[in-house]
Simulated assay, not measured.
Amino acid sequence: MSTAAKQFHEEEAIGKTYDFQIARRLLRYLRPYLRMLIPALILTLVLNLLGVLQPKFTQYAIDWHIVPRKTDGLMLLVGLFFGVQFLRFLFSYLQAVLLNTVGQYVMFDIRRELYDKLQHQEVAYYDRNPVGRIMTRLTNDVDSLNELFTSGVTDVLGDVVMIVAIIGVMLWMDVRLTLVTLLTVPMLFAATTWFRKGARRGYDMVRTRIARINAFLQEHFAGAQTVQIFNAEAKSLQKFDAINDDYRKANIDTIFYYAVFFPLVDFIGAVGIALVVWYGGYRVMNDALTLGALVAFIQYSGFLFQPIRDISDKYNVLQAAVVASHRIFKTLD
């Protein structure tokens, strides 16, 4: 295949993952909908702060009522817990509605701008770019941005708030037990770094190969009559098998990182909880810590690793959105 033909069929590889110029340009599409976006962000912060309160209810129930066998005030505590959970349910509903509404409006604006731009492109543009790739811009790439606006940024922001709040509460409760809990953080950081780099390469392979499939299918379906005239069905199928197999291998290679990372994070989290049980149990037996506080620490340890895991997972959403932004803005420019 000639160099020109390869450039026609191949999708460009990922360059710089983060680009603040791209971020500023994306913010331009959000600006008309700030009245909905700002309340959604506030709700995200409130939701995560309310989530941090849950282990404290457990601690107070154990220390104030279960261990001393006192029922006075227990129903009030249960009622407050139920009220907090109901507020989380209500705020979560409002947040989802606002974020998805903003996302759909932004996607509408981007699709409209893309379509208008493509209508005014010169004929030579369509000679250089297969229609399958152009369709990917209007569909897959725009959908990647939708996921970023509706869940990616807000979830990462909420997870960061959750991590800071949990560590702050744990330090306030017991500094030494908190330091023991955080002993596993370097291991988690190393695992996250390995996953991020591997997943980036894997996503690059998957993205370029699905774009190659889209371009190949469009070209061969549009020219199906020509393929049949030259009796080239078998040759065409052979080419598609090779492209399809490359896509399959890219997905399998990427799955390896997910298959290792998430169980590894669970294992590291289990090690952290084991350390809390070991050292915290010792302190409880020496009356340096209450049983309720130990149970709350165990819950906080589990809560601490979940947002870190979520942030690692959302890295791929961010990456997909940045890559899609580059491709969309390249088309618009």
Rank of each mutant, 00 (worst) to 15 (best):
A250Y: 05
G223V: 07
A222T: 09
T208A: 04
E219S: 00
F195L: 03
I252C: 01
Y258V: 10
K249D: 11
Q228W: 09
Y257I: 08
V260C: 01
F221D: 05
I252L: 09
A190C: 10
F256S: 01
F195D: 01
L188D: 07
A224Q: 11
T181S: 15
N251L: 10
D174A: 01
A250F: 07
V227Q: 07
G223C: 09
G198Y: 03
R212G: 05
A222D: 02
N214D: 05
Q225V: 06
M205F: 11
F195R: 02
I210H: 13
G223A: 13
I255V: 09
Q218L: 04
L183F: 14
A242E: 13
M187C: 11
K249P: 08
T181I: 10
A259Q: 14
K249F: 06
Q225D: 11
D253Q: 14
R209F: 02
F221L: 00
D241R: 12
T192Q: 06
R207C: 02
F189T: 06
V227N: 06
K235H: 15
A215E: 04
M173D: 08
R212L: 06
I213D: 00
L182V: 02
P263E: 09
F261D: 08
R212I: 04
N231R: 15
S236V: 12
L183P: 07
L217D: 02
V227W: 07
L237P: 03
T226A: 13
N244E: 13
P186Y: 10
L183I: 14
T192P: 06
